[in-house]
């Protein structure tokens, strides 16, 4: 039973991270119908920023939670800045282009960012400091769920709640929903589309950065390539839930997290990534509209 619970919580942790990254994919897709291939790289850059900042601060003598909070805040700021810039450079000039053009551009951006970090930093795995302290009240359950996992799950839950409130009730949230429904119509009623798109990228990147910091301190090491795999998996989660749908992304993330966790826990750990990819292929083939997505009718 403990083994089962351990896997369950492990899956929930994983799933939370996937959900955080998947939100970025889903929101961008909802508005631009673009698979933001470089999103995984934003997450990676978030994690790298946190690593650099926290190591620098730790060397300057700072300790514990301050380092964690400062590193996270800077990671979020930088990831958002990158997300914003990537959109301006690689996607904005291609709004009117054929559908595949921005996708190819996104792939180029992803390759560029990966190699940028590789060249400016290192190709080796870097140890990521354990920024999240061990809570004493968690001790009795440590064999089932660690403090870090607890923090990841609760942070994600809180963020989801805030995001829902943001999307539902704020002006910008409403503008985002309107734009996702019908971009031209939104433009006609006076919504500044560029602002909405930029905000979407900033928001999505911020969430990815949070995910990056959390997972990096959980796993304890990062390199320039983590964004690729995480990106594909998060995209799988987004598609699984129904791309364009925010609750769908969360649901998809959790389902994928559990599937992976149970598959590696009970079947085989060699094929961990194969499960995710196979899952992605299967969903796209059998239910491309996702778990909560609606089937779209082709209009002629």
């Amino acid at each position: 039973m403990d083994y089962f619970l351990e896997i369950f919580w492990g899956g929930l942790t994983r799933g939370s991270i996937y959900a955080l990254i998947a939100l970025g994919y889903t929101m961008v897709y909802g508005i631009l119908e673009l698979i933001n291939f470089a999103h995984g790289e934003i997450y990676m850059i978030g994690a790298f920023t946190a690593l650099i900042v926290s190591t620098a601060l730790a060397m300057a003598g700072m300790k514990g939670l301050t380092v964690f909070i400062l590193a996270s805040v800077l990671a979020v700021i930088y990831a958002s800045a990158y997300g914003f810039t990537v959109e301006k450079i690689a996607y904005k000039p291609l709004r009117q282009a054929p559908r595949l053009s921005p996708l190819i551009s996104a792939i180029g951006m992803s390759i560029f960012l990966q190699n940028y970090v590789l060249l400016a930093q290192t190709s080796d795995f870097l140890p990521f400091p354990g920024l999240i302290p061990e809570f004493t009240f968690m001790q009795p359950y440590a064999h089932i769920i660690g403090s870090t996992e607890m923090v990841i799950i609760s942070t994600t839950a809180l963020i989801m709640l805030l995001l829902t409130v943001f999307i539902k009730f704020t002006r910008m949230g409403k503008a985002m929903r309107a734009t996702a429904q019908d971009r031209n119509m939104a433009m006609l009623v006076g919504i500044d589309i560029n602002k909405v798109i930029s905000s979407t990228f900033i928001l999505g990147s911020a969430l990815a950065a949070v995910g990056g910091v959390l997972i990096a301190s959980h796993i304890g090491r990062i390199n320039f390539y983590i964004g690729f795999i995480a990106g594909i998996k998060a995209f799988t989660a987004a598609v699984l839930g129904g791309i364009g749908s925010i609750p769908g992304a969360v649901l998809g993330g959790l389902v994928l997290g559990w599937t992976e966790s149970f598959a590696t826990g009970y079947v085989s750990s060699d094929y961990e990534d194969v499960f995710a990819f196979a899952f992605l292929v299967l969903i796209l083939i059998f239910r491309p509209s996702g778990l909560v997505g609606r089937k779209t009718i082709q209009k002629v």
Binding site: A90, P93, S101, S105, G108, I111, F112, N115
Partner: peptide, 9 residues
Amino acid sequence: GAAIVLMMI
């Protein structure tokens, strides 16, 4: 990577 982006644009 950069060339792909620039070419597309």
